[in-house]
Design a protein around this nucleic acid. Structure first.
Lengths: 219, 219
DNA sequence: ATAGGCTATATTGTCGACAATATCAGAGTT
DNA sequence: AACTCTGATATTGTCGACAATATAGCCTAT
């Protein structure tokens, strides 16, 4: 009866819904997650809500205290900086590995992606800023072919970063420069130059970090 | 009634027990984790076993398929290499940050630790190889003061590495050299030299990785 | 004899109820 | 008035039962 796709449980759905609601700010930072309230809201039993909450905890989107409950993690600017430090390190490595491990086809597809982004920029579709950047980084990470690394970033860190960014009110800054940086990185990968790819990716993320730090200091 | 420490639930205990049993090889790689069997073995309900299994999955010690069950992750040498690549990157960063962020007291304590290790080595207490190395790395990571990084390594990656090492039968190689490398790293941190600390730590882990790769190729 | 489908069985997913714990309000004491 | 103790209440932790799904074995048809 079920297709090739592995079946999906209520807990899976609830987990994803909850994650989106948190990451996109519909459930705000620091908010208490009441199991009964959520179970009525999503129309499932408390057991599946608990399972969803458990998974959210393991991604550090929420914090749990025994016998007290779970709260959405409270954001500190410092936390965002810490995440960008980690990204700098891990994604630098991802770019280096990608320069060796990506297939020619994957690289071609990546170049196509950048072209699309460039044309959209000209059209002024600024909402693609964010999505485009995310897309780009996803591909590089997957191009590393390091499964542990892929899981770490895609299932964990990226969601955290996205939440912090939404909640601190920083969406898509410095668009055109970033696109330029993307192109340089892809060039390095095309030339199968691991060291350069790593350096450029680290620099790219460092720039983002600096932008964020500046903005945070405005307060 | 409860002390300063936050209380511990049955799920916590079961999680830790299960994790130890897996990491130390008492439950072997690829083994099926039957919920009912475990619930009788640890004398708790299926619900708490499920919660424990959930947490184990998020650390990638086990893999779950919906409606089928959980199995201890099957080890591949490639996976261990991947983990060491990640360690190289993350712990290099940890060392760099530690050179800036560790307090003088923490550094002093770290030097003491190394002295202890050295004397134990002379006594031939080889069983400290492993524990000593782990101890050392723990301190550096915590010295980074990057909470995200600390959580990532201590709660996640280290347990995975330990499991792989146990199951692939590689415990404590190249002891004396490692101690020497530890000393160099601590020196760099003492001198508050972030760049050098990073380089040395990366090299230290690369050596370990090479040793492992050599051993794996013996098959 | 083999391939395909069906049934039986075992395992996981989900649920509602009960137990244990923390939190808050109020009474009483100094 | 402040402080502690006690009890009421709400929330989480744990449990056993039921529902849904997958798997293996058997049976049938070609």
């Amino acid at each position: 009866m079920n297709s090739i796709e592995t079946s999906i449980t209520a807990a899976d759905r609830t987990f994803i819904q909850l994650r989106n609601d948190i990451v996109e700010g519909r459930i705000e930072a620091g908010a208490k997650l009441s199991e009964v309230e959520l179970s009525t809201r999503y129309d499932v039993s408390r057991a599946v809500v608990r399972e969803a909450i458990n998974r959210l905890e393991s991604v550090r989107l929420i914090e749990r205290k025994p016998n007290v409950g779970a709260r959405v993690v409270t954001l500190t600017p410092q936390g965002l900086i810490e995440l960008y430090q980690i990204r700098e390190s891990l994604e630098g490595m991802a770019a280096r590995l990608a320069a060796t491990n990506m297939t020619d086809d994957e690289i071609t597809a990546l170049r196509e992606l950048l072209k699309t982004h460039a044309s959209e920029l000209i059209d002024g579709q600024s909402y693609y800023q964010e999505a485009g950047d995310v897309d780009f980084h996803y591909r590089i990470v997957q191009g590393s072919k390091n499964q542990q690394l892929i899981s770490l970033l895609l299932n964990g860190i990226y969601h955290l970063v996205r939440m912090y960014r939404v909640q601190l009110g920083m969406t898509g800054p410095r668009v055109t420069t970033a696109l330029n940086e993307h192109e340089q990185i892809v060039n390095a990968i095309t030339n199968r130059d691991p060291e350069l790819a790593e350096i450029l990716m680290r620099r790219h993320i460092t720039y983002s970090k600096n932008t964020i730090e500046k903005r945070l200091n405005q307060y």
